[in-house]
Amino acid sequence: MECFSLLRSDVPALIDHLGDFGEVIAPHGKGDVSYSFEVVRDSSDVVLDYNRTLLPLKKMFLPPVEKLIGFSLKNESYEQVDVAIAPRVFFGVHSYEMQSILRLDHSMLSGSAESNYFKRRQSSRFVGISFEPDEFHFSESVGVVIEEMEGFDLFLNEVDDDFQLYVLTDNGQEMLNGFDKINLTEPEIVEGRNFKKKIRYHYNRLPRVFQYAYHSDVWADVASRCVGCGACTLTCPTCFCFDVQDHVEVTAEDGMRQRSWDSCMLSTFAEVAGGENFREKTINRTRHRLFRKFKYITDEEGLPWCVGCGRCTAFCPAGISMPDIVNELIQEDEKAQYHRTVRV
C-alpha cells in the first residue's frame, strides 16, 4: 500500500484530475449549517471538513424517488426504464458511509439481486477522507474507525492540516496516473481524533443485550418522546425500505410507477388493505427500528446494521439518541443480571 503526501491546496487539482474517470460527486455546503453530496461543478466548492451530509450517499444508488416503469392507461401497456451504467467517482466519503454502502450491497443484492441498484453501483470508485468526530458520531462503537479503508480506492487522511493519500486498489493507482502533485511518504498514525459518543459494550455483545430487550421499559420512554416524523430512518444510510406508488399525468392517459424511500417509523407502514395495522403503536415501531439495526440482520451477518454516522440523532427533532438507547438497554440488562445473580 503506497502512501503519498498531498497539500490541502492541491486537493481541488486532484478532484479535477479525477473527473477523467467519471462524474465526480462530493460533499458541498447546503443551507446554513448542513452538507450534501452533489455533482462537482467547481472543485473549489467541495467541502473537505464536514460532519455529515443530510442524506447519505445511498441516494446515489437507491434514489429517494425513482421511476420504475412508465405506463399508458389507454393501451394498458408499460415501458421499461433503462438505468444506464455510468462511471462515477465519489470523493470525500467518510469511512462509516463506505461501510453503509457495503451493507446496502448486501441488502439489495442478496436474495433477489436488484438490477437497478446493481447498474448504479457498477463502475463507481470511492475516495475516502478522514473526519473529526462530533458529538453525534459513534462509528467506532459499531466497529468502524475513522481510518477504516475497506471499500475505498483512495483514502485521504488529514495530517497536520494537509493530507496523506493512501492508494488501496488498482483502480486507485490508475486514478493517480499523470497526477504529479503528490510525493511518496511514510504513513503516519494520527492521534487525538477521539469519539465523544460511545456505546459502552463492544458491538459483538449487543445481540445478547437485544435478545433480552424486547420487553424493556426503555421502548415506552422512547415512544413518549418520539413524534413519528421518520427523520431517523429517512436519513439512515443502511435503511432501504421503500414504498411504490402510481402517478397519472393530468391528461389521464400516461403515468409512471415510482418508488420512494419509506420509513418503518411511520404509523401506516405495516397497515394492510383491510385496515389491520401490524405495528400500530409507536412503541412497536421504535423497537423495530433498533432491532433492525442490532439484532435481525446482525444475527445472520454478524455485523451491526448501524454504521454510527449519528444522522438519526443529529436530525431527530426530539433529540432521541440511538447510542443512548443502546446504553440504556445495556444498563437495564446489567441490572437484570445483577438481580438474577443476587437472588441465587
Binding site: S107, M108, G111, S112, E114, F240, C241, F242, D243, V244, R259, D262, C264, F269, A270, F278, H288, F291, K295, Y296, I297, D299, E300
Partner: peptide
Amino acid sequence: KCGVGKCGHCQING
C-alpha cells in the same frame, strides 16, 4: 408490497 424481500413492509420481527 414488493414481493422480493426489499421494501420492508411485510417484516415480522426478523
